[in-house]
Amino acid sequence: MVSALLAACVIAAVFATALRRLAPVPETAPPIPLVERIDALLPQTQCGQCNFAGCRPYAQAIADGSADINRCPPGGDAGIAALANLLGIAPKPLDPAHGRHAPRTVALIDEAVCIGCTKCIQVCPVDAILGAPQVMHSILSDECTGCGLCLAPCPVDCITLLPAESPIAAWRPEQSSRVYAAPVVRSA
C-alpha cells in the first residue's frame, strides 16, 4: 500500500513537472486601444454634428478628454450610456447644441431638379452620391448614413431626407466607417 502510494506520488510529480514545462501557453490577444473601443460605440454616420470631422476624430477627442460624451445625436441616449459605461463615468443628457436624436433618414435627390453641380458629392463623408459634372446625381441608399451634410451645399434644394424604410437597412456602421477611412488610408 505504501509502495503504491509512493509510486503514485513520484509519477504524479514527474508528470506535473513535465506538463508545467511543456504545456502550450494560450495566445493572448493584444489589448484594443481605448480610441478603437470608443469608435466602435459611435454610430459611424460621419455626420459631423459633434463639431468633429467624423466619428473617429470624435472618438480620439473623447479618449484624449477634450470632448464630452454627449455630442452625438445619432447615437442617442443609448450611445451616451454605452460610452459612459465604457469610460466609467455617469451618463449625461444629449447636448442640445449639437442637435437632437431623430430616426435614421436616407437622402433622396430629385432628379428632375438636379443640375449636376457635384457640390453634394464633395461633402458626402461616405461616398454615397454617384454622379459627374453636368450629369444627374443619384444617392446610393445602401451607403447613405442620413447625415444631412449634402443638404446645405445644394444650390437648387433638390435633396430631401426621407425616413429610412427599415430600421435594419442595408447601411451598416462598419461599412460607412470603412468608406470614410479609405481616403485617409490612401493618402497615408
Binding site: A8, I11, F15, A18, L19, L22, A23, P24
Partner: peptide, 20 residues
C-alpha cells in the same frame, strides 16, 4: 521538439492512468 516532447508526455500520462 517541444511538440514532440509534449506528445510523448501525454501518451505516457494516458498510458499510466489507464494502466492504473
Amino acid at each position: 521538439l517541444r511538440a514532440f516532447a509534449l506528445h510523448g508526455v501525454l501518451v505516457a500520462l494516458v498510458t499510466t492512468l489507464a494502466g492504473a
